[in-house]
Nucleic acid binder design. Structure first.
Length: 737
RNA sequence: GCGCGGUUAGCUCAGUUGGUAGAGCGUCCCCUUGACGUGGGGAAGGUCACAGGUUCGAGCCCUGUAUCGCGCACCA
């Protein structure tokens, strides 16, 4: 700051004409962004030295890649703002600040979107087009939507290094994905297995646990016996699955049924022959229902595990189209029809014991709304509990060359503090999720995405980064779960698997700020991939943010049609106002309610800064130099120094909302309402030294204020800064201390 | 069921290590004083969900209750 007061004496300026009108963000934002881009300073390789000398310390963030399914929404705007504030702050502090942009192909979401359009516009399905044509269409759609969304990110003022732009399906990221797959396959951590998966009959694909939404429905809970001579009644809401039963399980300590354990019975159930064994298993809750569980291994996760323990057969009785696949009259019926038929049959045979309505949560696909049918299928999995030897580890508590599991890595990365997750609540959620984690099903039966890098020829199987030599090889038709590639994002964007300078310099990344809803989906999987492939955490600090909600507290969603278009807000109030309005909306981590009034308030604030500047220019046009000599002026500067230190403290703790509020408060209540008001008398003082002192003070306070406001309101501050003679870009000025 | 979070002014939300409650918007009154009316000055408005506890002192810490919301797992 002291060097500033020595700089000032050389400066004198008239108020440029633009200050005579109110601030018009629309006129300047595009121009300013272009100036920034042309400067090359978004790329840390081009940054000028800082006050402390050459920039040596890296600071890196990767942008959580928006899906190429549509346009920017206000949640993106919030997230972009958080990251841009941090990036700009660190850049001004002298770091090699890098923020990498990218987009995500979002396999299922994007394909579903295109399929929907296809159905609507042409009345066709993807099968009508064929795989090749369909994938082409999806790529076209993605390209279009990518252009749109990147244009929108720029409008937010995001200081992203576009020269390092990455797309999850580009060549480099493809290579990273295949390499990651192969490495994990070779380590025995990716395997193929027949397991119960969440099958979406509507989307004709498997989906992960995280893509399931539970919907509350009323269902009929039916208690019945398989046959007249069967000794135990069981209950179910899914009668149609009962033709796939191979056992009845009771609790080992349940005396009511103890005598039956081990016996086997034959029955013909609604035309289907059943062979039922009575087994004892701890998983059964003796207090629920009749205390006996009909075991349907092929259509229930829990039952599959019971079947494992008792070596039971696992007949599949429902197919991929949610239709019955059994002997007799039920064959080919939809599950709901079959349920009715069986109920009628039970009544007719007098096997129905009782029936009641219950409320239960039905698993549906988040994407298609289809009711999930648990089915056994041959799928690819990542083994999270399987021990393996990690060749290299920088994670505290995990030695290089030691035996560990992916789950242990995920837990240790956060437990050890290598990933700093300061929000206790979210850390608890994270650990809770890890504890319940099962093997991750990574194959998807869709066409758009990373094709699984495995080829088959008869009994032979080959896993590699490119197709194997020779004829007759056929590639696995499935594609990978989109989160598989997203999970590599912190290092695939930096050039991995090549040993690039970027990877060396910028990984682990410094900071990540995702929404809490993708903590399990994405954050934990980035930790999984990064610790496995690099032995490093993906980021040193993760600060989870909340959702932006509509004023009534509901989520913004397309179906509710309550969305707010950030571009409309920018058009109306300016990007700076939108940024401030979102940041001050609430503490990071809690949900933010969207409030247009708040954004409007910050448009007024931008104008206030504009007019402060006008006042300073108008009153310093004859400024010939001189320093801040008056005691009260010096006190004002000292006070600003304290405010700056306070704001810096808040920034260091990532209390961005507090820093923003304090900036607003200082600029308006102290600088404008007190300092400027009090300076008016001094500016007309007969003693030219007093006037000069006031002038020096005003210039210094204005310039410092612009600097500390810049990360929050980059456009208006940069525009004002450009009106001072002999100044470079504000974005690379040094953060005052 | 397990886990997490919220409950503070009419509305939307802050509140840093416990020290007499804050902002924006809204409401009311005043001001055509040369930076800005997209402004300035002032005012009203809160038993900080409830009940206990710890403390000299609690919006903040502890226990419990209510209520709203979220996540995970689901019971057949």
């Amino acid at each position: 700051m002291s060097d500033e007061s020595q700089e000032n004496p050389k400066e004198s300026s008239k108020a440029p004409a633009k200050f005579l009108k109110p601030y018009q963000p629309q006129d300047v934002e595009g121009v300013i962004y272009q100036k920034w881009e042309e400067s090359g300073f978004f790329n840390p390789d081009n940054l000028p030295p800082a006050s402390a000398g050459e920039r040596t310390e890296p600071f890196s963030i990767v942008l959580p890649p928006p899906n190429v399914t549509g346009t920017l929404h206000v949640g993106h705007a919030y997230e972009d703002t958080l990251q841009d504030i941090v990036t700009r702050y660190k850049r001004m502090q002298g770091y090699k600040a890098l923020w990498i942009p990218g987009t995500d192909s979002a396999a299922i979401a994007t394909q579903a979107r295109v399929e929907k359009n296809l159905q609507k516009d042409e009345g066709k399905t993807r099968h009508d087009l064929g795989r090749e044509e369909m994938v082409k269409r999806v790529h076209e759609f993605a390209k279009n939507s990518e252009d749109t969304i990147l244009g929108q990110v720029r409008k937010m003022g995001a200081s992203l290094d576009w020269s390092r732009y990455a797309y999850t399906l580009d060549d480099k990221r493809n290579r990273a994905v295949f390499t990651a797959f192969k490495n994990m396959y070779d380590a025995g951590l990716i395997y193929q297995g027949n397991r119960i998966v969440n099958w979406d009959p509507k989307g004709q694909t498997t989906i992960s646990d995280d893509e399931i939404a539970h919907e509350e429905r009323t269902a009929q809970m039916v208690t019945f016996k398989y046959s007249k001579d069967f000794p135990i009644a069981i209950a179910t809401t899914r009668l149609e699955t009962k033709v796939g039963d191979t056992a009845v399980a009771v609790h080992p300590d349940d005396e009511r049924y103890a005598e039956f354990v081990g016996r086997e019975y034959d029955a013909t159930f609604c035309g289907v022959p059943l062979h039922i064994k009575i087994v004892a298993d701890k998983a059964v809750d003796p207090t629920f229902g009749t205390g006996a569980l009909g075991v349907t291994p092929a259509h229930s996760m829990a039952d599959w595990e019971i079947a494992d323990r008792h070596d039971l057969p696992r007949p599949q009785v429902i197919n991929e189209y949610a239709k019955m696949d059994v002997e007799g009259a039920l064959n080919g019926k939809k599950v709901l029809e079959a349920r009715e038929m069986i109920l009628e049959w039970l009544k007719a045979e007098d096997l129905l014991v009782s029936s009641e309505d219950v409320t239960q949560n039905v698993a549906t696909s988040e994407r298609t709304g289809g009711i999930i049918e648990p089915l056994p299928k041959l799928q690819w999995f990542v083994a999270v509990n399987k021990p393996f030897t990690i060749p290299h580890s920088e994670i505290p508590g995990i030695e290089s060359g030691s035996e560990t599991t992916l789950k242990t890595l995920m837990r240790t990365a956060v437990e050890s503090g290598a990933v700093d997750m300061p929000q206790d609540g979210f850390r608890a959620t994270y650990f809770h999720w890890i504890e319940n984690l099962r093997d991750w099903c990574i194959s998807r039966q869709i066409w758009f995405g990373h094709r699984i890098p495995v080829w088959y020829k008869g009994e032979e199987i080959y896993c590699g980064i490119t197709a194997p030599e020779g004829d007759g090889w056929e590639q696995d038709p499935d594609v990978l779960d989109t989160w598989f590639s997203s999970a590599l994002w912190t290092f695939s964007t930096l050039g991995w698997p090549e040993k690039t300078q970027d990877l060396e310099t910028y990984h682990p990344t410094s900071f990540m700020s995702p929404a809490y809803e993708i903590l399990p989906l994405w954050v934990s999987r980035m930790i999984l991939m990064s610790t496995f492939h690099l032995g490093q955490v993906p980021f040193k600090k993760v600060l989870i943010h909340g959702l932006v909600r509509a004023k009534d507290g509901r989520k913004f969603s397309k179906s509710l049609n309550n969305g707010v278009d950030p571009l409309e807000m920018i058009e109306k109030y300016g990007a700076d106002a939108l940024r401030m309005g979102l940041i001050v909306g609430g503490a990071i981590g809690s949900d933010v309610t969207f409030d247009e009034g708040r954004i409007k308030a910050y448009k007024l604030f931008a104008n206030k800064i504009w007019n402060i500047t006008r006042f300073v220019f108008e009153n310093t046009d004859d400024y010939q130099g001189g320093t801040v000599t008056e005691t009260k002026h010096q006190e004002n500067i000292a006070q600003l120094r304290e405010v700056t230190a306070d704001i810096t403290r808040e920034m260091e703790q990532y209390h961005l909302h507090l820093a923003a509020e304090k900036l607003y408060d200082y600029t308006w209540k102290t600088f404008a309402d007190k300092i400027i008001e009090e300076s008016k008398a001094d500016l007309v003082n007969a003693d030219p030294a007093v006037r000069a002192s006031a002038q020096a003070m005003l210039i210094e306070i204005l310039q410092t204020t612009l600097k500390i406001l810049h990360p929050f309101m980059p456009f208006v501050t940069e525009e004002i800064w450009s009106s001072f003679p002999n100044k470079g870009l504000l974005m690379v000025e040094n953060w005052p201390s």
